[in-house]
Amino acid sequence: MQKLTRIITLSVALTVVSGCSYVGVYKRDIPQGNLITQEMVSQLQPGMTQEQVAYVMGRPLLEAPFDSREWDYVYRIDKAYEGVEQRRVTLTFDDASRLVNIEQEGDLSRDLPVSTDRGMGPAVEGADPLDALPSQRTPTPETTPEPQPIITGE
């Protein structure tokens, strides 16, 4: 009976310890949306066309489905151990597709930590996609096959 009690106690203790780690788990920052900086927003001026705005800010994350006169740029970063930070810029255009209003939410003046590690995962924006390809060997003269003559039937 004592062996059974010890086995059950040990099994319960191992189950509790393995399921609930007191050491902690690894968390990483999760950025989502369009990266928005104060420098980008300061380049915007009333009267700019939608094409000019798209050149400065990129394409918007959200466009109103029934009214293309409002563009929303949203950036949200869920910091692993600090909470969530959100930035939002809403741009309104007139009927001639000219910028008339700029609304900002969140602190755009602070720099955001943007990961530039080159590990596994999606490529960093602006990176050369050819860098991700494995290096290719250029054929040497010894390994290049010689062209075969073409025989045509007459």
Rank of each mutant, 00 (worst) to 15 (best):
D78Q: 09
K3I: 07
S21V: 10
L112E: 03
G58D: 11
Q50A: 15
T144G: 02
S109F: 02
P139S: 11
Q148A: 13
G33E: 02
E70S: 04
Q52N: 04
K3F: 14
D117V: 00
P139K: 04
P122I: 05
Y55Q: 08
P145V: 07
Y22D: 14
R69W: 03
L4C: 06
T143Y: 11
G121I: 10
M1A: 14
E63C: 02
Q136G: 15
S11V: 06
L130Q: 09
G19I: 00
K27T: 15
V23T: 15
Y81L: 03
Q50K: 14
G153A: 09
E39D: 12
P139M: 09
T144L: 13
D94M: 08
D94Y: 13
A80N: 08
D67I: 08
E70D: 04
R76N: 01
G126W: 08
G33T: 00
E146W: 09
L91G: 01
S109R: 04
P129I: 04
V16W: 11
R110Q: 10
I151R: 06
E142L: 07
G153V: 07
E85T: 07
T140I: 09
E85L: 10
V74I: 07
T138M: 10
T92M: 07
L61P: 08
L133M: 11
V23H: 14
F93P: 06
P139A: 13
M57K: 05
A54H: 06
A54P: 03
Q45K: 09
G83W: 04
A123S: 07
A80E: 08
V25Q: 07
V89W: 04
Y73F: 07
L4Q: 12
D78V: 05
V114D: 05
T92S: 13
T152M: 07
I102S: 01
L10A: 15
E63A: 01
S109G: 03
K27C: 15
Q52I: 00
V53H: 13
I36G: 08
P145C: 02
E154M: 12
M120A: 15
P147R: 05
Y26N: 12
S97E: 12
A127F: 04
Q32Y: 12
Y75T: 06
S42E: 12
D128V: 01
L4A: 10
T49D: 08
D111P: 10
T138N: 09
P113Q: 13
E70I: 09
E105Q: 11
I30V: 12
T143S: 14
V89I: 08
V17I: 14
T152A: 07
G19L: 09
G119E: 12
R88H: 15
A123R: 09
T144R: 12
P145I: 05
R6Q: 06
P46D: 13
Y26W: 07
P134D: 11
P134V: 11
G33A: 09
V124T: 13
E63D: 03
I30E: 15
T37Y: 09
G47D: 03
R59M: 04
Y22H: 14
T90H: 03
L108V: 01
P60A: 00
D29R: 00
S18N: 06
K79S: 03
Q43I: 01
G153K: 08
D117N: 04
V114K: 06
D128R: 00
Q52R: 02
R110W: 04
T5I: 09
T138H: 09
T9A: 14
D29K: 00
I151K: 05
P31Q: 01
V17G: 12
M120V: 11
Y55S: 06
Y55E: 08
R59E: 11
K3Y: 14
T116R: 13
